[in-house]
């Protein structure tokens, strides 16, 4: 049940996407998102779909798994689609009561939904193929120029990796406490909003207490291993850019360039 929450979860594998440097993947994801927002018409969207499909196939992650990440946002996607469908001006092709559907509306709704779904799928592909540690290492390395401006890059990266590291732990913990309270007859599934909120107390209180306990234990464990910030810290797995990373980046840049051209000529 809760175990299936896949947000920020890493799926180990040995595809070329898995092996890319995390910095490459981060930059590529940004390029992908920019390119996605530049898409304006059939051909540009088609190109983005092909690119995404190719990445998914190469990553060897099952489409079903990636689509599951979209599921929690389905309501937002539907609302966005409906708003675009009804509130786009143009030639009405269907009219009833106060609603008016236009051809432009349909087109925009479809494009908008495509854009959101592809945005989610693309970013999920990043987190599915990159371990949280590699991801924050990459981020720290990419942001390191900001250190000159006294921006706490290392601290931020450490906080992020701890947060990411504890998501599965907390999910598991939630699962366990939920089971324990269910074993004592707690009911999380039925009742009105107020009853449900109240039913969550036996879950939230132990969860908070254990989160604080964990934070405390982690701090002690880090200090007893002499952790005192990023100064002079070396990495066990230093990041190295390889030929495949440069090739991937060039391809990414090429995609962006093509999308810019398509955007200018509105195709």
């Amino acid at each position: 049940m809760l175990r299936d929450v896949t947000l920020g979860q890493y799926f180990p594998g040995d595809s070329i996407v898995h092996r890319l440097d995390p910095r490459t993947k981060l930059v590529l994801t940004i390029l992908y998102i920019v390119a996605l927002f530049l898409a304006v018409d059939y051909f540009s969207y088609a190109l983005m779909i092909v690119v995404l499909a190719a990445c998914i196939i190469v990553s060897k992650i099952k489409l079903r798994v990636i689509l599951r990440g979209v599921k929690p946002l389905i309501i937002i996607i539907i609302i966005t689609g409906l708003l675009n469908l009804f509130y786009t001006k143009g030639e009405p092709i269907l009219e009833f009561w106060i609603f008016k559907i236009t051809l432009e509306g349909i087109k925009r709704a479809v494009f908008m939904i495509l854009r959101i779904v592809m945005l989610i799928m693309g970013t999920f592909l990043l987190t599915y193929t990159t371990s949280p540690v590699a991801l924050t290492d990459g981020l720290e390395s990419l942001l390191s120029p900001l250190k000159k401006l006294r921006f706490p890059v290392h601290e931020l990266a450490m906080m992020m990796s701890i947060a990411l590291r504890f998501i599965p732990t907390l999910v598991e913990e939630t699962d366990k406490i939920m089971s324990a309270q269910k074993a004592r007859g707690a009911n999380f599934e039925t009742g009105n909003l107020f009853q449900r909120a109240k039913a969550l107390l036996p879950l939230l209180i132990p969860l908070f207490i254990s989160a604080f306990r964990r934070a405390d234990e982690l701090a002690v464990a880090m200090e007893s291993r002499c952790y005192n910030g990023g100064e002079g810290r070396t990495k066990m797995k230093a990041l190295h850019m390889r030929a495949r990373d440069w090739v991937a980046l060039v391809l990414g840049a090429a995609l962006l360039a093509v999308m810019i051209v398509m955007n200018v000529y509105k195709i």
Binding site: A183, G185, N187, L201, P206
Partner: peptide
């Protein structure tokens, strides 16, 4: 299933973390 929850009592590992 709900009825059985009360008939089959289950004490989890480290049950002290469920106190609230």
């Amino acid at each position: 299933t709900r009825e059985v929850r009360f008939k089959v009592g289950l004490v989890f590992q480290y049950p002290e973390y469920q106190l609230f």
